[in-house]
Write a protein that binds this DNA or RNA. Structure first.
Lengths: 336, 336
DNA sequence: CGGCCTCGTGTAATCGTTTACAAAGACGTG
DNA sequence: CACGTCTTTGTAAACGATTACACGAGGCCG
């Protein structure tokens, strides 16, 4: 691999001058700049970011640790993060925690060793010592989607309480009463908050909150299926199942289909997170849509600010309800 | 940030010894090893991978440049690549080419600067000078899913010709004759090959191949919708639309739905690539499933071999047809 | 014409590792 | 006891960039 030294020799200048050209310092004569650039082109020189990072103590790289890239929410989030990072001149290194704290920590550790300039973390479950230590050491860190209590870390997330309340009102207006939810793990802020918002909304609507209608999944398809199975096995199964994310919705759908039940006639369905194919189901699925792209963009921008040592505040966007037909319709119109 | 120097001081040894402990060299006394590890723990030392890479000329990092992370095929692929890479001790840096050659090149360039140990590339369209140069320079490179003609690069991909032939036979047996396809861009090997396999299969079944039934999309939703629109606007619209990937299928479904057409009564649908939610559509979508996980795993393993300078051969797996009901059914059973 | 600025460039230190080589101590053997 | 061998450790030179500082040349002014 060619280095600045080779380029310098070829151009008949010193390495310092080459470096100056590469970093377009203004203190270099057009003529020499020309010569250096010519040498760069002739040799096919490519700057070594590793050496550069060592010297400048910056990698222009940020780490992104997400719950599960197969979860459409995170896929879209990763995409948005990537896009924004690129425009800001950062590369991203992705870590797939698979919703497991040990794997999250594995990636955080690796990313720290790689000396990423900052870290975007969708924290999995509880606070691990590693995360606590990272915060303490002052690495630029921003929580995304989820948060951890008791840590001073800016968080970019969407608040779904309003949308959930709207959903519950919608369900009540449709005459539903036995409303169950399969939420995320109570250890996750998103799981907890959505459950709380849900029970609060139920009470506000004067609807009963029954413990056995409160299932907890783990944001993966299997748990959605299992949760739906338990609910449907109840002596008095619910009218509606409100599922905590897209992957669990897939599982719940599997179960509903396997039992040959019809939506919304036998059981209605609503989902936190909106997926492109929801409109193609029959009936289309009522969902709560998060501003995913915006979440990703804002998170990267916040992290970039932190990296440049500017103070940044948390960001809370709002999710919104998208009513379709999977919970029934106002007018008692036909099945299709 | 603490460095080996600090650790060495604390443990009362030289930096060489610290390094030896860190790389568990066998030539170090249990007692000193102990002392060094204690110092590491006390100081919370974390090895600087940047410096290490500079010295060892290896980053234990591989680049993955894919067409579009939002495409479920690539999402699953990325996930599989990540998993396998982790078990082999590599991190991956992802680049989202968004099906654009310029963006692909942007990422290839960045990854080269970052000195990735190897590159997994799903090449976008034509051969760019940069890609050609990368091959020439001898960077360990493996093509994934797609290939480029005339370059000596091992490729890991799935062959769908058999499955496509089976699909066409299936369609013929169901009585379909006017079969259209929305394939990928002809510039992409996957686009080209699938089209060729499709026309060959049509001929083999004695079915006519009409040019106006051969649409080309770009593997993104919009083009699926546009292609479907053009096909359905034809004076003699097709019986069946065979879509080249999941994202375009989504677009085609949008168009079909917008026109209020019923599947398979008004137009049948089949898709190259199988998606988890296909089973939940009514009717469920007949699809061709690629062994995505296996593709990802094999690609990483192949690249790892190349990185260690062992010769590797291309890998061709086979896709398989998954018959569901979106093209009609043998027995003329009811609408549901 | 001497002194001082300014401008462009070069020299060399530095970032945090790894590792070739040297060195020093322990120990067995003739 | 002298010597070779083996084991464990240390010294210092890389890796490839950036950058503080020095330096020389040229221009300007008094």
């Amino acid at each position: 691999m060619t280095s600045v030294k080779d380029v310098a020799r070829r151009a008949g200048v010193s390495v310092a001058t080459v470096s100056r050209v590469l970093n377009d310092s203004p203190t270099v004569t057009p003529a020499t700049r020309e010569r250096v650039l010519a040498a760069v082109a002739e040799l096919g020189y490519r700057r070594n970011a590793v050496a550069r990072s060592l010297r400048t103590d910056a990698t222009r790289t940020i780490g992104l640790v997400i719950g599960d890239i197969l979860n459409p929410f995170f896929t879209e989030l990763a995409r948005a993060v990537e896009d924004e990072a690129r425009t800001l001149g950062y590369s991203i290194v992705i870590g797939n925690a698979d919703e497991r704290p040990d794997r999250q920590d594995h990636y955080v550790r690796t990313l720290l060793e790689q000396r990423v300039d900052g870290l975007l973390l969708c924290p999995t479950a509880e606070i691990t010592p590693l995360v606590r230590g990272t915060v303490r050491d002052g690495l630029p860190l921003v929580f995304l989607d989820r948060t951890l209590p008791g840590l001073q870390v800016p968080t970019v997330r969407a608040d779904g309480a309003g949308a959930i309340a709207a959903l519950v009102r919608h369900l009540r207006d449709l005459g539903h009463e036995r409303i169950a939810s399969i939420s995320g793990p109570a250890l996750l802020s998103t799981g907890r908050e959505r459950t709380e918002a849900f029970t609060a909304a139920m009470r506000a609507c004067g609807l009963p909150v029954r413990d056995r209608y409160l299932e907890a999944g783990d944001f993966r398809a299997g748990s959605g299926q299992a949760g739906a199975a338990r609910l449907l096995d109840l002596p008095e199964p619910p009218d509606v199942i409100f599922v905590g994310d897209g992957l669990m919705a897939l599982g719940a759908l599997d179960e509903i289909r396997a039992r040959g039940l019809r939506i919304p006639h036998d059981v209605a369905l609503a989902c936190y997170d909106d997926l492109p194919w929801f409109t193609h189901l029959d009936p289309p699925v009522t969902a709560i849509a998060q501003p995913v792209q915006e979440l990703g963009r804002r998170a990267v921008r916040a992290l970039a600010e932190r990296i440049e040592d500017r103070p940044v505040a948390s960001v809370v966007l709002t999710a919104r309800l998208v009513v379709r037909r999977s919970c029934g319709e106002k007018e008692g119109s036909g099945p299709a």
